[in-house]
């Protein structure tokens, strides 16, 4: 299936399954990468076509992308957050992640009345002691995620929910340390139910939330039944 995914012939359920595996299985991801390495050189044979002039449109869309300086701001805030306790951590994460969190900010603007559904705790773990703890608030209106131990990397952790259909959806970037409060877009809240997987992958911050993870997850955990 790795070869067929790399070739691009999979569709429907099989494609979704491959995308799920890509995130869940480093071995599968490595096989896909190997096949891409074999097949991609064929791309040299594509014939050129007179291109449209869409450069100005591309340049305009770059403005919507996160610029590198935001990353250093994020790191600075994380440093402060680490020192000043949980409240500051949450506050800092909310303030800092504001501009880089989810595009559908409009969806999250109107908080619904809290329903008496208790919070759920999930643990996400990976190789070499990677560990995160997530607390999903009532009706998944918020999700606190605390990075306990993450591997060293210049990349930024991104949180994903993988529901029953196996297709990962981004919940946005999270801080490398301390607690990040994520406000899931309304459309994704129903997916944050027991049995769904939470995953964290390391990504470049530009363009987040991404439509699909670029690498295998460093940590995975199932949302437990209440």
């Amino acid at each position: 299936m790795a070869a067929e995914y790399a070739l691009g012939v999979l569709e429907g359920e099989e494609r979704a399954e491959a995308q799920r595996l890509l995130l869940a299985s480093p071995a599968f991801a490595a096989m896909v990468a190997k096949w891409q390495g074999r097949l991609d050189p064929l791309g040299e044979a594509f014939a050129e076509a007179p291109p449209p002039d869409v450069w100005s449109a591309i340049e305009a869309r770059l403005d919507g992308e996160v610029q590198p300086h935001s990353v250093s701001t994020l790191r600075l805030w994380q440093g402060i957050a680490g020192l000043s306790g949980a409240l500051a951590a949450v506050l800092a994460a909310v303030m800092v992640l504001g501009p880089v969190t989810l595009r559908d900010a409009a969806d999250t603007a109107a908080p619904a009345a809290p329903a008496p559904v208790p919070a759920v705790i999930a643990q996400l773990s990976g190789a070499d002691g990677t560990l995160l703890a997530a607390r999903i608030g009532p009706d998944a209106q918020y999700l606190d995620i605390r990075a306990v131990a993450l591997p060293d990397s210049g990349l930024t952790p991104e949180l994903w929910v993988i529901p029953g259909d196996g297709v990962p959806r981004s919940l946005g970037l999270i801080a490398r340390d301390g607690t990040t409060q994520v406000t899931p877009p309304e459309a994704l809240r129903p997916l944050l139910v027991d049995g769904a997987l939470l995953a964290v992958s390391l990504e470049t911050p530009e363009g987040a939330p991404h439509t699909a993870p670029s690498s295998t997850p460093i940590a995975l955990g199932k949302i437990p039944a209440i």
């Binding site: 869409v54 869309r61 770059l62």
Partner: peptide
């Protein structure tokens, strides 16, 4: 044309 725009945005994000 639409995909081409996405491609260069991906290049921007993944160049690293």
């Amino acid at each position: 044309e639409d995909v081409l725009q996405q491609v260069y945005l991906k290049v921007w994000n993944r160049a690293g």
